[in-house]
């Protein structure tokens, strides 16, 4: 099995695991992690697609896609974590009041 194929199957496996978790859990933090795993799977697929054999240089375009995807994912994860924390604060203060 070639390296590129191995990475592709690894990516698909990650996507499958992430989707499974995303659908079955209601825990907010676990969902954030699942989405990050999903994105890592897609990144593996993209990097595998860039591979052009041991001699040739890899295709730079998918690498640029992955880098942009990482930037997007970091900011989205930050937004999700901020929202979760805020929701947690609100729920705690309600519990405290009653």
């Amino acid at each position: 099995m070639s390296t590129a194929l191995l990475y592709s199957f690894g990516g698909i496996l990650l996507i499958g695991v992430a989707l499974h978790r995303l659908v079955l859990t209601t825990d907010l933090l676990r969902r954030v992690v699942a989405l990050n795993v999903f994105a890592a799977g897609i990144a593996s697929l993209l990097i595998a697609a860039a591979y052009r054999g041991p001699e040739a240089a890899a295709d730079p375009v998918p690498h640029a896609f992955v880098l942009t995807g990482i930037v997007v994912l970091v900011s989205t994860t930050a937004a999700a974590l901020a929202l979760i924390r805020r929701l947690d604060d609100l729920e705690r203060s309600v519990d405290h009041d009653t």
Binding site: L35, T76, L83
Partner: peptide, 11 residues
């Protein structure tokens, strides 16, 4: 609701 929206949108 916003978090569900964020997760759905990200997916």
């Amino acid at each position: 609701a916003g978090l569900t929206y964020l997760f759905a949108g990200l997916l």
